[in-house]
Design a protein around this nucleic acid. Structure first.
Lengths: 230, 230
DNA sequence: TTGATATGACTCGCGGGTAAGTTACCACAA
DNA sequence: TTGTGGTAACTTACCCGCGAGTCATATCAA
């Protein structure tokens, strides 16, 4: 027994890489649920079962930790968007494929969404840069589709296109948010709902553009194993 | 000169009601610009040219002050929505009239918008109640229009209607936000832009529903004097 | 003199961040 | 096999600024 001081320190035999990953998981859930401002480093430390200074040792600062979380989330979501853009579909069909991919990707980790669209996140630093980058690429992707639509309708006003794009992104977010607020609805059912909504708004959607109606679902399930991991 | 102590207190001859109004104006701008979390009571006191304890004397707490601001903003915006709903138009025409009314109402006081849609606002208390009430009424108003649209399209699924409603509200907010981000665009020009966008999305809008294209603008300018006060 | 209007100078908790020390593990010498 | 030093993993206990909220006090008008 010797000199059993009441100190509780000392290694627990967990390697840095492993501990970092563990902290990251907890932090993503926390930031994605309560937002950046609503989450304290002490909260994360407690949830991860470690002490605060360890987080500062490994990530430097609250903002540094958050930046890594955001980069991870942005990369994940962006990968999904890019995959959809390679689906070979265009116009509304591609929109549907993208929505479907989002539902499937977010199913096991819904907090990722709020992590990226957190209004309380800091307006500078590495995390913000990552988000700006993500938004820029997303913007370019969406601008194509909206541009096509506007041109097909004979409208070439750049202001109109810009506003229209804002509306489209907002509608996209609204559909995802609605789905996140209705956890009972399966991704499949939600995609079908989106299809019906598109039909209502745009008149009957030309399904020949879409190939077959099931294409979105099939492509998504091809990758669903890969996505259900985390 | 007598005993000129360096104390700076004492009344400045401003009546409580007047001072409260003055504080309120400053607070609305502050909360509406930097958000609830991003605004300190000291900030407001300094901007109003008074000291912090006076605010606590008159409004009890930061949340109390914020609640009054929110109630004011919600009432103002709601009045505009209700006026639009009495315009006699229906469907897309009413949507246009409502948007036009918002642009005109927000022109002289754009911060009102963020005051109502502030993600950093407290989730309880009188201000939150006022917002919930406002949202409920807004919801009922929007549900009508969306319900009509869905029914006309032969879709009676309540989930579809709910999601559709979320999309509509989101699109509405996106248009207003876009406009707030482009201060050079006049309300008139923005309303015309919305008309063109509606035309692009829904196919050519039936303008007979709308009466004449200028109806929104005319009704709004009737009241523009009343709105440009604050 | 009384009450309304006003303020300087506090208290206090919360949360980001840090200094200094403690323990376990591991490579290597005896 | 058993010391022994070095390092990586970890914690306790603190600092410090910021912002909400308060107290005692001061001035003036009626």
């Amino acid at each position: 027994m010797a000199s059993t001081t009441r100190a509780n320190a000392g290694t627990k035999g967990v390697a840095r890489a492993e501990r970092e990953q563990q902290i990251l998981d907890v932090a993503c859930r926390a930031f994605g649920s309560a937002g950046y401002a609503g989450t304290s480093v002490a909260d994360i430390a407690e949830a991860a079962g470690i002490s605060k200074p360890l987080i500062y040792n490994y990530f430097g600062s609250k903002e540094g930790l958050h930046a890594v979380c955001v980069q991870h989330a942005a990369a994940t979501l962006w990968a999904e968007f890019e995959r959809s853009s390679r689906s070979g579909t265009i116009g509304l069909a591609r929109a549907l494929v993208t929505l479907d991919g989002m539902f499937t990707a977010l199913g096991p980790q819904p907090w990722m969404w709020r992590l990226v669209f957190d209004p309380t996140a800091p307006r500078d630093g590495a995390g913000h840069e990552a988000l700006l980058d993500y938004e820029r690429r997303l913007f370019a992707l969406g601008e194509d589709g909206v541009g096509e639509l506007m041109q097909a309708a004979g409208n070439t006003d750049s202001g109109d296109t810009s506003a229209m794009h804002a509306v489209w992104e907002s509608a996209f977010r609204a559909l995802v948010n609605w789905w996140l607020d209705h956890p009972d609805v399966t991704p499949q059912a939600m995609t079908e709902r989106c299809l019906r909504i598109f039909g209502t708004v745009f008149g009957d959607v030309d399904l020949s553009d879409l190939g077959e109606p099931g294409v979105a679902r099939r492509r998504a399930s091809e990758h669903s194993d890969r996505l259900t991991r985390a």
